[in-house]
Amino acid sequence: MPVFDLATTELRDLNASLHALDKEGGNEEFEVTNPRGAHAVAVGIDAPVDVHIKGSVGYYCAGMNETAHITVHGNAGPGVAENMMSGKVVIKGDASQYAGATAHGGLLVIEGNASSRCGISMKGIDIVVKGNIGHMSAFMAQSGNLVVLGDAGDALGDSLYEARLFVRGTVKSLGADCIKKDMRPEHIEILAKLLSDAGITDVKPDEFTRYGSARQLYNFNIDNADAY
């Protein structure tokens, strides 16, 4: 298994090696030690590789990921898994602002807390947070699922489109056009699969509340003309 010690190796050498992997390649495994908060660790991978990062990372770790499985054994800085397309990213600690922003696919699991703007503008990614999430999470979220085992901060789901939000704890406040919705059987099924994919076995789907778009902002309302 290749081991990259970022205390002695350039970050570019690590990322170049990851970019050189065969898209159809086998089950390679990489280990990264001493990340010490470095930016852009393991970004832009397009191969089914397992990457274990032993420590905390800075901005934009695992951004644009396709098919790789990346585990951060520590905390992640702002923008982890930003614009992920597919694959799986697991953060063993906490994640900073805008985790999973604009991501199109894949699964992001945050075992600690996520701070503000988690899943902002998400476009198909599934995000499971075992702890709490901060304010303005899922702002303008377009599709995908955001699952929160703890509590959500202010203005959850402001101006969201068709993403589904499942929160087990309390929601400090809902954003504009975000409302509580019924849990129908198909939602229980989706949630059960996401919890299982995230390796969570001690929490049941019926403990969650679903939130989504009231769809009142989709079209221009002539009564609001004075506001412009």
């Binding site: 010490r36 908060g37 470095a38 905390s56 800075g58 901005y59 905390n75 800085g77």
Partner: peptide, 9 residues
Amino acid sequence: FGSEYRALV
């Protein structure tokens, strides 16, 4: 305190 974790390592 640090703007980033890097400052604290």
